[in-house]
Computed example of a mutant assay.
Amino acid sequence: MRGLRMLAEIEAMAARHFLTVLGGFTCEDEAELPAGTRSVLLLGPAEPGYWAHLRAQPEWGGVDPVDRWSRRVIGRMACDLGAKALFPFGGAPYHPFYRWALRTGRVWDSPVKLLVQAEQGLMVSFRGALALKQRVEVPVAISPCEACARPCVSACPAGALDAAGYDVPACHAFLNQPVGADCMNLGCAVRRACPVSVGYARLAEHSAYHMGTFHK
């Protein structure tokens, strides 16, 4: 019960910043993690509310506002919990968030190799992680891909992302054209095709912001 209470406490702390626990895993003495880590919880945006909240924060308008906000908020959470904050950005060597996500039982390798999460589908993104000294277990889920028609495989209008992999140059070339405006303004068509993503309240302007940073 102690672990469940702590998970509820962390979820409540995260919710105050419109973040949520997207998954987690337990561990013991792993070299790539801070000494004494027994659990890792992955944190990401919680919609509705995240994007509007983020744009009202003091970091907004400066350089790398999303990353700087993430460092401040998740760093403060880690301090309050006696944990360590880990981030998927900041330069090499990067923490293996993709691999960590697959360990959670709530995030999977989708048919197009992008990560797909139980509640957020292909719209999932990670703002950071908490490396805890306590053992905290997050309930696992069933992959939404198991009973899905997999529209993501054929959704890319540029033919740049499918089961065979991701052709990044072809994607950028498509986005350079007027026909790429839909993806630039609304977000990646493949991510939007996921039935779970359709039910997640991510704003188009949020997706457009990240498409803009991707396609500079």
Score class of each variant (00 low, 15 high):
Tyr98Pro: 05
Phe97Val: 09
Arg68Asn: 15
Gly82Arg: 13
His95Leu: 13
Val112Asn: 05
Leu86Asp: 00
Met77Ala: 14
Val63Ser: 11
Gly90Tyr: 07
Pro93Tyr: 03
Leu102Asn: 06
Arg106Asp: 10
Glu47Trp: 03
Leu115Ser: 05
Arg68Thr: 11
Ala83Pro: 12
Pro65Tyr: 08
Pro111Phe: 00
Ser110Tyr: 01
Pro111Ala: 00
Val112Phe: 06
Gln117Ala: 15
Gly75Tyr: 01
Gln117His: 13
Val73Thr: 14
Ala78Ser: 09
Gln57His: 13
Trp69Lys: 02
Pro88Asp: 08
Lys113Asp: 10
Val66His: 04
Tyr50Trp: 09
Ala101Tyr: 06
Pro65Asn: 07
Leu54Gln: 12
Trp69Asp: 03
Arg55Trp: 01
Trp51Gly: 00
Val112Glu: 04
Gln120Asn: 04
Lys113Thr: 10
Leu81Glu: 14
Val116Cys: 07
Ile74Met: 07
Ala118Glu: 02
Tyr94Leu: 14
Trp108Asn: 03
Leu114Tyr: 07
Gln57Asn: 11
Gly105His: 02
Trp51Glu: 10
Asp67Arg: 05
Pro58His: 15
His53Met: 13
Pro96Met: 09
Gln120Ala: 13
Pro96Gly: 10
Trp100Gln: 08
Pro58Ala: 15
Ala83Val: 10
Glu119Ala: 05
Asp64Phe: 02
Gln120Glu: 06
Arg103Trp: 02
Trp108Cys: 03
Lys113Leu: 11
Phe89Cys: 09
Phe87Pro: 04
Leu54Tyr: 06
Gly62Arg: 15
Ala101Glu: 04
Leu114Asp: 04
Gln57Asp: 14
Arg103Thr: 01
Ile74Leu: 08
Gly91Val: 08
Arg68Phe: 10
Gly61Tyr: 12
Val63Phe: 13
Tyr50Asn: 12
Tyr94Gln: 05
Phe89Asn: 07
Tyr98Lys: 14
Phe87Ser: 06
Arg106Thr: 15
Asp109Gly: 00
Leu114Phe: 11
Arg72His: 01
Pro93Asn: 01
Tyr94Val: 04
Ala101Thr: 00
Glu59Asp: 15
Val107Asn: 02
Gly61Leu: 12
Gly49Arg: 12
Thr104Gly: 03
Lys84Tyr: 08
Tyr98Thr: 14
Trp60Glu: 11
Arg68Trp: 11
Tyr98Gln: 12
Pro88Gln: 08
Leu114Ile: 08
Phe89Tyr: 15
Thr104Glu: 04
Gln57Pro: 11
Gly91Arg: 05
Val112Met: 09
Leu115Met: 09
Ala83Thr: 09
